[in-house]
Design a protein around this nucleic acid. Structure first.
Lengths: 248, 248
DNA sequence: GCAAATTTGTCCGTATGTATC
DNA sequence: AGATACATACGGACAAATTTG
């Protein structure tokens, strides 16, 4: 059979067994669940996992790589393996590559992305203007001021402020999934757009004005105006995508 | 230095180089992009990649495992390695595990999922009733009939019909991202809910009636009624989650 | 149907880089 | 600085799946 290790004797001829690596993946998952570990908690070392799960280092390491790609596990070289943050980093990686690969319609991916982000914010308009208080409005205003100060819309300060603005905007929903998806899509857009010659934040001044209008709508508790401001905000983004598509 | 292979001579002492495996990941990505490969296209064999990228087989294999976890690459034992389908399977894996792990609030994850699915369908109500033609309505009706025939709401026929129903419902948007996200969330719900003693499709008859109401709204081109029917549909789902939470 | 060739799956032993104490 | 524990990486060998002659 195999070289050294002991595996369940019965070959189970017709069962089409899954790769051992996958059993190790499931075993590590079960371990985390069984002991109710939290992100950051340490996992057994590789040799310990080998013995516990009856697999070689290679199989254990490949399993760990899979789990690390999903952010279920986090590896620190020379230190150890830990439960991961369970972020949506895998989604970002996957979507970003899809955006770069997509053949005829590179731009459809970006367009779809923007649709979802706008849907999140416009679809929750009523709840957002209701739950965004004065304190949150002040913080939103702070990001708008940062954008205005950063100026042309190309510096990292501008980009970061824009990301923070939209993150904070949907935070009051208390729906972590929407918040993380929205942030993930923002990241994917920031990765893919430059490769497709889509200008990001072309006109700094206009972008700042659009964000200001959103803040004003929040302060006025006017969900209709809030929705309108969002439409005004995402319109230019779509236009830039369409222009880049036309250039091809 | 290392055992056999040749690597760039300069050790670059303080640069904190990234792991070789990551370079291999990037190398394979670049290969796919450079030759504009499509899903299903074959990739070089492992030995070929080792030589091309100057890495050992272990490193190449770990890199492939990462890319396979993201569905950027697909591996068939004894056959070869191919460009993957770029699905959102990684999102499903990641979110499903989060739902199982989540400590105090296992149910918040499910609740968030349902919020997003309802947001997709309700937020696009106008476009959906406009773009869903009679042909699509007939197909939706077919799934409702399947659910009615399957009866109690527990059999696989019922489940599959429900999934197909919602997939078809948002298909006319022409937004693949929304469609795949919605399907992914449906899958995550189906994986996580049973583990939390959340009954899925408790009352078959009521569920069928709610879906029927949605089809009727589509036929009537009544977006307000369409929205109302969706609220009626997702209400019981939320109630079941709340009940299960209360039982804890 | 069988055997060979190709490709991925798994194992082992060893050496190196990294972080902690 | 040294010792220890850990992950990273290498190379070779054999096992299992698939295709092909």
């Amino acid at each position: 059979m195999r070289q050294g290790a002991t595996r369940p004797i019965a070959p189970e001829p017709k069962v089409a067994r899954q790769p051992l690596r996958q059993e190790v993946v499931d075993g590590i998952k079960s371990y985390i669940l069984r002991y109710k570990l939290r992100p950051g908690d340490p996992l057994p070392s590789e040799p310990a996992l080998c013995e516990a799960l009856g697999a070689s280092r290679s199989s254990v390491r490949e399993a760990i790589r899979i789990l690390a790609a999903l952010d279920i596990v986090e590896v620190r070289h020379g230190h150890g393996t830990y439960v991961g943050r369970l972020s949506l980093s895998a989604l970002v990686e996957s979507l970003a590559f899809r955006g770069l690969l997509s053949p005829d319609d590179d731009f459809q991916v970006l367009s779809d992305l923007i649709d979802v982000r706008e849907l999140f914010e416009r679809g929750m308009a009523e709840r957002l203007v209701r739950d965004l208080g004065d304190e949150e409005a002040d913080r939103l205003q702070g990001f708008v001021d940062m954008m205005r100060k950063a100026g042309d819309g190309k510096g990292p300060g501008f980009i970061d402020a824009d990301r923070s603005f939209h993150t904070l905007l949907i935070a009051p929903l208390g729906n972590d999934l929407i918040g993380q998806l929205s942030a993930a899509f923002w990241d994917v857009y920031a990765i893919v757009a430059p490769h497709l010659d889509v200008l990001t934040h072309e006109h700094g001044a206009a972008t700042v004005a659009n964000h200001q209008r959103i803040v004003d709508a929040v302060r006025a508790r006017d969900s209709a105006e809030f929705s309108a401001a969002l439409t005004e905000h995402y319109g230019p983004v779509r236009r830039r995508i369409a222009e880049a598509r036309a250039r091809r």
